[in-house]
Design a protein around this nucleic acid. Structure first.
Length: 445
RNA sequence: GGAGAGGUGGCUGAGCGGCUUAAAGCACCGGUUUGCUAAACCGGCGUACUGGUAUAAAGCCGGUACCGGGGGUUCGAAUCCCCCCCUCUCCGCCA
């Protein structure tokens, strides 16, 4: 969410941002509704002032100890006169009240309209964001690691996993429908291993480990920017008016919502592993094979809440990106970083860097990480604030990035570490988390 | 799920129709004084929307709303009525 004052003064900028982000919103209507809203509020305020002042006078006229009452008596008014004046005033205020009533209804209607329009206004992208229509126009920033060459026929992770008895997609589908899977033996171990490694690394870097709910209230989904626009991507538990989150970013970022923090508490760095639920609506037929795009996965997510300072946000954006890159380097996986173009940005994101890891079966880099900065966008929605050094209340800035997401990261790990025999070497850093296992063989299942 | 008790500013807590402009205390900020830490005294101290004015910024002067949320009664509601939510205690169920 943006400041309405900013929107009023920069309508063209917002329209351009929406066009670049390929988000539809009606800025002109918002500005019209805003003008109406302010007009109604002014009228209502004036009437309420009249009502309050009159009401107070009645109270005092009826109170013999009040100054107004004494003054009236001193001016020679009889008790009957005073009583009549109060009654006269009371009937006048009944008229005022009759005017207030319908205006209050207008106010409610207009405010509701105003808010629902406000929810749809996008955060303008940073100037460094390339303008483009979709992910094909993302701009590569750097490649790290080398894509290895193999002198034997490669298997993809599905074939490998099924032959080793560590991936069983068919039974996952039997239990839960398409885009579901099961892992077994060393597969399940490997899944846990990457998550545990990621948590340990982040704790080493000073992030506070958290355990958070994944079933959250509507306002939390609105606050983080996933609603109302992304509603069809979420699993809803309508009976309880709750939603399953698609990422721990949601509960972590909203953790301090509605609070006014002190500046000394910032930055707040949090990390959590959580299940992530995604309906993948509109992705029918896309990435159907294997573990790439599924409905439920686990992800270690890093979130930073910092001061309202763009330079500081930028610095932390680099930091969270470096955290993820460091982990991929430890896992010896080749990847590239892309500057995500405007059309591929979310509503609230100022800028986003995706990390794409090499996946032989796709013969391309596939997205495994997504590092975003939001400036105030989420904080405004969440009423997440702090008192700065001048004791002024300001909105925080928020950022987040994947640390690791499983099972997607298992795709490059399995495919890049396969041997001619169809075994999989376990990367060194994961071995301690795999009960010392160095190679996954069929026998190891 | 059932019964009871509660939800008031950053915190504690009073108020239960109009001298409430939400008391008081703590915390916090500014000042005075005492050679330091501390104490005492004086002053300040919420959030949101909004009008005016001014500026390089800050600000200054007003208005309205907000005492868990939403309705209602009333000239007037933190206070009375209705609905909902949440917390606590006990019971039930349960990993």
């Amino acid at each position: 969410m943006l400041d309405i004052k900013f929107i009023r003064e920069n309508a063209e900028l917002i329209k351009q941002a929406a066009a670049n982000k390929r988000i539809s919103c009606d800025v002109d209507q918002l500005i019209a509704v805003d003008a109406e809203r302010r007009k109604v509020q002014q009228d209502l305020d004036a009437l309420r002032t009249k009502s309050r002042e009159g009401g107070e006078r009645i109270g005092q006229l009826r109170n013999p100890k009040s100054k107004i009452h004494k003054d009236a008596v001193a001016a020679g008014k009889s008790a009957a006169d005073i009583k009549a004046e109060a009654e006269q005033l009371q009937s006048e205020l009944n008229d005022v009240k009759a005017q207030i009533k319908p205006l209050e209804e207008d106010d409610r209607r207009v405010v509701e309209q105003f808010e629902s329009l406000m929810w749809t206004i996008p955060q303008p992208p940073a100037s460094e964001v390339p303008v483009g229509k979709d992910d094909t126009e993302n701009v590569e920033i750097r490649k790290v690691g080398t894509v290895p060459e193999f002198d034997f026929e490669l298997k993809d992770h599905v074939e490998l996993g099924e032959q080793l008895g560590i991936i069983d997609i068919e039974r996952g589908v039997k239990l839960s429908g398409s885009r579901n899977y099961t892992l077994k033996g060393a597969g399940a171990l490997l899944y846990q291993a990457v998550l545990r490694l990621a948590m340990d690394r982040m704790i080493d870097r000073g992030f506070t480990p958290m355990q958070v709910p994944v079933l959250v209230r509507e306002e939390v989904m609105y606050g983080t920017g996933y609603f109302p626009t992304g509603r069809d991507q979420a699993y809803l538990c309508e009976r309880d008016e709750m939603s399953l989150v698609g990422t721990a970013e949601v509960p972590l970022t909203a953790f301090h919502s509605g609070e006014i923090l002190s500046e000394e508490e910032l930055p707040i760095k949090m990390v959590a592993v959580s299940p992530c639920f995604r309906r993948e609506a509109g992705a029918a037929g896309k990435d159907t094979r294997g573990l790439y795009r599924i409905h439920l996965f686990d992800k270690v997510e890093q979130v930073i809440i910092c001061k309202n300072d763009e330079a500081e946000s930028l610095k932390f954006h680099d930091e969270i990106l470096a955290n993820a890159e460091g982990l991929l380097q430890d896992l010896e996986l080749p990847y590239r970083v892309v500057n995500v173009c405007s059309g591929d940005l979310g509503q609230g994101q100022v800028q986003k860097f995706d990390i794409e890891t090499w996946m032989p079966s796709r013969n391309s880099y596939g997205e495994t990480h997504s590092a975003s900065r939001f400036y105030e966008f989420q904080a405004r929605r969440l009423k997440l604030r702090y008192k700065d050094a001048n004791r002024k209340t300001r909105f925080c800035h928020t950022l987040n990035n994947t640390v690791i997401a499983a099972p997607r990261i298992l795709i490059p790990i399995l495919e890049l570490n396969q041997t001619p025999e169809g075994y999989v070497r376990v990367p060194k850093v994961l071995q301690p988390y795999m009960r010392g296992m160095e190679v996954i063989t069929a026998e190891a299942k």
